[in-house]
Design a protein around this nucleic acid. Structure first.
Length: 780
DNA sequence: TCCTCTAAGAGAGGG
DNA sequence: TCTTAGAGGA
């Protein structure tokens, strides 16, 4: 081991690393060297005589786990690191549950249902209960069930909890508890656990079997939790149970980066940690090594608007850097163009590579205009997120075969493939089998096996028997052959591979390639020696299935270093950093999302999301927004995001954000490119435009055919000084048309007017610094 | 049972 | 705009 590993650390980092005993909370600000601290701490533990077998380190993503493993290995330089338990909550618990699942009545080779499987089960049940799935939306019901499990609420408790029942009554969905109950029983019958079960059943196991709890308490003497601000109550309780004896619990997190409450995380876990244990030591990592002062100041200022935070002061020694550039464009397409042009410009002028750029947006749907414009500019890019490899239909279908081979109880998987490829077993037949299975309390598969007894005949019976025989033959084959050989046989016997091969359409070709890739991955799996040790010593099909279910595209990381511009949601960007970041679509109702502005909690989470976006940037940050954009096929007008107002003026360059200007060229090239920045055909701007060199240029292009509700500004439109506005005045707005000022608020240099636009969508709040108003008549 | 056409609906997403 | 579910015809 490197002897001087502590020398690379600053004082608080060193303190965090060398505090070994007792509860420890590390508040790690953005870019403060969190991973370094975590990995060094593990190395330090081992250097101080702690056995690797006694260390448990839990993360949220496989990627984080992998990175941690690699870095620990680098420091330790030996094979000892292999003995550590480093993994995601889900993968570690899945592993532990494999050996103890029979205690809970599950087979040890239980199937893991991903959320698609789970939703499909919910949907089946909703239909069985003859409920309207427009009202009991499977997605919504599943989220409710998921939330219950994440809060350790059993089906019985759910149905008897007054508050929960009240809530369901109020939304007139009183039967969710019933669905939850049936769902839990169905999964159990299918020998399946969903993602939430991996936590929930782990808790049930530890709570119900003291000897199991004692075993793991003894084993995991040192526990470390990454991203603690994202833990949910189930994770919290499990950690508490496991650590109760030794209390060597180290949690790391940043409350300012808690952005996952929508999937059950409670920021309270980190805010309350100090109260959970006696003598909690708190170490704050406050020096940021990532960003310029300008970027950090903007981030700090915005996040300070949130209440109830853990006090911290994130600072940096880095130079001040450039101001953050705020860019306003007319349309979403212009936004894409400006970003693409700015990337070209920055590459040329400041010698950046493609991989130095990242475009961050709130919703995946926003990616389109950037894709198009990047493609047009011949800038290579890659979009992260969206459908993962294992979620593609052809892959899920193929995997369903493997799942059925492994676990005949897996009804979801059987239904997926029973008629794929088409073999004449249709909807009616499947429904019948379902009904028989429920009536006779048999599994779906058992009914299929005894199809003749249940009165199926003719072609249907033949088809079912053929299917059953085929699956059984795979099962027999698995006894003598490895997972890869069986998978190849599946591809042959079912004709799937041949069929896709003969499909010469683009999609067909892609599907064929995907199946080949899947087969390759299975081959690779069977041929590479395991590194997980212990329980994962064998390379069975079951283990392969578990691995891929708990794996996502993001973990693949194969293109990690490829030289392309990266596009992703802000959520997906957490933990990453880029020299140049574009945070786009900064408009009200988009960011903050219109779905999250109804409570302070929701809005604060959006603000934290904005904070995460800003703190991804190392040297340059561009913030963009558009006057109008197509959403759901309709042209939508949005006000600039409220977050833009919360930023400190002195670090912002607003010269590209003037009233109604049409930015379509590169931004921030150092001034030389002003000439081509604007569409020269445009009419001169009114006196209300800002006094930058840009002000002599344009205002929005009047649309040729104004869509209904779209206002074409009067020919003499000139914005009036916000300071002269008063309530009661009749005014004109460039887009919303004529209206009346109802009230005014805010400081004189940053006034917000509430205006009623009869033809422009009713009452609107207008920030007068951005959207200009012309006084039509002085009201009374 | 299979196939095609229409209509409704749409957030972020790890494991 | 794009995707997916369900209706209705072959």
């Amino acid at each position: 081991m490197k002897a001087n590993y502590l020398d690379d650390l600053n004082a608080p980092q060193r303190e965090a690393v060398t505090t070994i005993k007792g509860p420890l909370m590390i508040i790690a600000g953005a870019g403060s060297g969190k991973t370094k601290v975590l990995t060094t701490r593990i190395a330090h533990l081992m250097n101080n005589g702690v056995d690797a077998f006694n260390i448990l380190s839990l993360t949220f993503t496989n990627k984080a786990a992998k990175e941690m493993k690699e870095r620990v290995e680098k420091i330790l330089g030996g094979s000892e690191a292999r003995n550590l338990y480093i993994g995601t909550f889900h993968s570690v618990f899945a592993r532990l549950l494999r050996s103890d699942a029979p205690k809970l009545g599950y087979p040890s080779d239980f199937t893991i249902y991903d959320s698609d499987d789970a939703k499909s089960v919910v949907k089946t049940i909703v239909n069985e209960l003859n409920l309207d799935d427009k009202h009991y939306k499977p997605n919504m019901v599943y989220n409710r069930i998921s939330a219950a499990k994440n809060s350790l609420v059993s089906p019985e408790e759910y149905q008897h909890d007054y508050a929960i029942q009240q809530e369901d009554q109020r939304s007139s969905r009183p039967l969710i508890g019933k669905i939850y109950d049936m769902y839990a029983k169905r999964c159990f019958k299918n020998g399946a656990m969903d993602f939430d079960d991996l936590l929930y059943k782990m808790y049930v196991l530890l709570k119900g079997f003291p000897e199991v709890l004692a075993k793991y308490q003894h084993k995991f003497k040192y526990i470390m939790i990454d991203e603690y601000q994202d833990t949910n109550p189930a994770q919290y309780e499990i950690v508490k149970l496991l650590g109760a004896v030794h209390e060597n619990i180290c949690v790391v997190g940043d409350d300012a980066q808690s952005i996952y409450s929508f999937r059950g995380a409670t920021i309270q876990n980190i805010l309350q940690f100090e109260k959970d244990y006696d003598d909690v030591k708190v170490v704050k990592l406050e020096q940021n090594y990532r960003s310029t002062k300008s970027i950090l100041n903007v981030a700090n200022e915005v996040i300070s608007k949130n209440k109830g935070q853990i006090e911290k002061n994130l600072w940096t020694d880095n130079h001040e850097g450039e101001k953050i550039k705020l860019i306003r464009t007319n349309t979403d397409n212009d936004e894409g163009k400006v970003v693409a042009d700015t990337i070209s410009e920055q590459k040329l002028r400041n010698h950046y590579d493609n991989k130095d750029f990242c475009i961050l947006y709130r919703t995946n749907a926003q990616s389109r205009s950037f894709e198009e414009n990047l493609r047009r500019s011949a800038i290579p890019y890659r979009i992260y997120g969206g459908l993962s490899f294992y979620q593609r239909k052809e892959i899920k279908d193929f995997i369903a075969y493997l799942r059925v081979i492994m676990n005949s109880r897996d009804e979801e998987a059987i239904k997926r493939i029973i008629n794929y490829p088409v073999r004449g077993i249709g909807k009616t037949t499947i429904e019948k089998v379902s009904i028989y299975a429920n009536d006779q309390n048999m599994t779906f598969w058992e009914v299929l096996e005894r199809a003749k007894e249940f009165g199926f005949k003719g072609g249907t019976l033949e088809a079912i028997d053929g299917f059953v025989t085929m699956i059984q033959s795979f099962r027999v084959m698995l006894e003598k052959h490895n997972a890869y050989e069986v998978a190849v046989q599946v591809g042959k016997s079912t004709n799937i591979v041949k069929e896709l091969f003969n499909d010469k359409t683009t999609e067909g070709l892609a599907r064929y390639e995907n199946i080949q890739e899947l087969l390759n991955s299975i081959k690779e799996f069977t041929e590479t020696p395991t590194e997980d040790g212990e329980l994962l010593d064998d390379k069975t099909l079951g283990i392969y299935l578990q691995q891929i279910t708990l794996l996502t595209d993001a973990d693949n990381g194969k293109d990690e270093d490829s030289n392309v511009v990266k596009l992703m949601t802000i959520h997906a960007a957490k933990g990453l950093e880029f020299p140049i970041v574009f945070t786009v679509g900064l408009e009200e109702s988009l960011f903050p999302s219109g779905m999250s502005i109804n409570s302070r909690e929701e809005l604060e989470e959006e603000r934290r999301l904005f904070y995460v976006a800003v703190t991804r940037a190392k040297t340059r940050l561009f913030l963009t927004y558009a006057n109008s954009r197509y959403r759901f096929g309709q042209l939508q007008q949005n006000e600039p995001s409220r977050f833009l107002e919360e930023m400190p003026e002195e670090f912002i360059d607003r010269s590209y954000a003037g009233g109604g200007m049409r930015n379509t060229g590169p931004i921030g090239g150092g001034g030389a490119s002003w000439g081509n920045m604007f569409d020269k055909k445009k009419a001169p701007a009114g006196p209300g435009a800002p006094a930058s060199s840009a002000s002599s240029s344009a205002r929005p292009t009047p649309r040729p055919a104004a869509p209904a509700g779209y206002h074409v500004p009067s020919a003499n439109f000139t914005a009036d000084d916000p300071a002269t506005m008063e309530a009661g005045m009749d005014v004109e707005h460039q887009k919303f048309g004529f209206g009346k000022i109802l009230s005014l608020e805010g400081a004189i240099n940053n006034r917000i007017a509430t205006v009623m636009f009869p033809k422009g969508g009713g009452e609107k709040k207008i920030m007068l610094n951005y959207a200009k108003l012309m006084i039509v008549r002085n009201g009374g």
